[in-house]
Simulated scan of single mutants.
Amino acid sequence: MFGSLLGGFMTEYFHPSYSFLLYSLFGLVVMLLGFNLDPEAEEDVTAAEDEKGRKRAFLEEVRHNLSQIRGAIKLPEVYQTLVFFLLVGLVEPSFGDFWYYFQLNVIKFTKFQYAMFGVLGYASLSLGTLYYNLYLKEHEVRTLLKWACYMGVVGSLLSLFFVLRWNLACGISDIFCIVFTDIVLGTLGLAYSQLPTMVLFAKITPSSIEATFFAFLTGTLNFSNTVMRPLVGSMLNDYFVGVTAEDLSQFYVLCLVSMATSLIPFTFLHLVPLKEEIKQWQEGREKVQEQ
Rank of each mutant, 00 (worst) to 15 (best):
residue 226 T to W: 14
residue 171 G to S: 05
residue 132 Y to L: 00
residue 167 N to S: 11
residue 1 M to N: 11
residue 44 D to K: 15
residue 1 M to Y: 09
residue 210 E to Y: 06
residue 275 K to Y: 14
residue 286 E to C: 00
residue 187 T to H: 04
residue 197 T to G: 06
residue 205 T to G: 07
residue 156 S to W: 00
residue 56 R to E: 10
residue 216 F to A: 00
residue 79 Y to D: 02
residue 34 G to L: 12
residue 171 G to F: 09
residue 96 G to T: 04
residue 1 M to S: 14
residue 82 L to N: 06
residue 127 L to V: 12
residue 254 L to R: 02
residue 153 V to A: 12
residue 275 K to Q: 14
residue 131 Y to V: 13
residue 48 A to W: 03
residue 81 T to F: 09
residue 232 V to P: 04
residue 152 G to Y: 03
residue 243 V to N: 04
residue 229 R to W: 02
residue 53 G to I: 02
residue 254 L to M: 01
residue 230 P to Y: 06
residue 46 T to W: 09
residue 69 I to F: 07
residue 148 A to S: 15
residue 94 S to E: 07
residue 20 F to W: 14
residue 129 T to S: 15
residue 151 M to K: 11
residue 270 H to I: 13
residue 162 F to E: 12
residue 275 K to G: 12
residue 90 L to R: 05
residue 266 F to G: 03
residue 278 I to R: 05
residue 56 R to I: 02
residue 229 R to S: 13
residue 56 R to P: 03
residue 27 G to A: 02
residue 178 I to C: 03
residue 211 A to F: 11
residue 277 E to M: 09
residue 71 G to Y: 04
residue 10 M to D: 05
residue 49 E to A: 14
residue 22 L to T: 10
residue 265 P to M: 00
residue 140 E to M: 10
residue 43 E to F: 10
residue 155 G to E: 05
residue 241 V to H: 07
residue 32 L to G: 12
residue 154 V to Q: 02
residue 137 K to D: 06
residue 215 A to W: 06
residue 233 G to R: 01
residue 45 V to G: 02
residue 44 D to G: 13
residue 82 L to M: 14
residue 280 Q to H: 12
residue 125 L to G: 11
residue 68 Q to N: 15
residue 127 L to S: 03
residue 179 V to Y: 03
residue 262 S to Y: 00
residue 125 L to S: 10
residue 89 G to L: 03
residue 50 D to A: 14
residue 110 T to G: 07
residue 115 A to T: 12
residue 11 T to Y: 10
residue 174 D to G: 07
residue 153 V to D: 05
residue 260 A to H: 01
residue 265 P to I: 01
residue 172 I to F: 02
residue 153 V to F: 11
residue 210 E to W: 00
residue 89 G to A: 05
residue 83 V to W: 09
residue 81 T to I: 08
residue 28 L to W: 04
residue 222 N to P: 03
residue 225 N to M: 12
residue 155 G to K: 06
residue 263 L to K: 03
residue 225 N to H: 04
residue 89 G to E: 02
residue 239 Y to M: 07
residue 188 L to G: 08
residue 177 C to G: 07
residue 18 Y to L: 15
residue 264 I to M: 05
residue 28 L to F: 13
residue 111 K to D: 09
residue 264 I to P: 14
residue 215 A to Q: 07
residue 42 E to T: 13
residue 224 S to A: 10
residue 70 R to I: 08
residue 68 Q to A: 15
residue 191 A to R: 00
residue 275 K to E: 15
residue 88 V to T: 12
residue 233 G to A: 00
residue 50 D to R: 15
residue 203 K to D: 15
residue 99 W to P: 00
residue 138 E to P: 06
residue 232 V to T: 07
residue 212 T to N: 08
residue 142 R to M: 11
residue 206 P to S: 04
residue 84 F to R: 08
residue 81 T to A: 15
residue 185 L to W: 02
residue 244 T to C: 01
residue 32 L to A: 15
residue 223 F to S: 10
residue 14 F to G: 00
residue 138 E to F: 08
residue 245 A to I: 08
residue 133 N to F: 12
residue 33 L to Q: 10
residue 91 V to M: 06
residue 198 M to W: 09
residue 167 N to T: 12
residue 33 L to F: 13
residue 217 L to G: 00
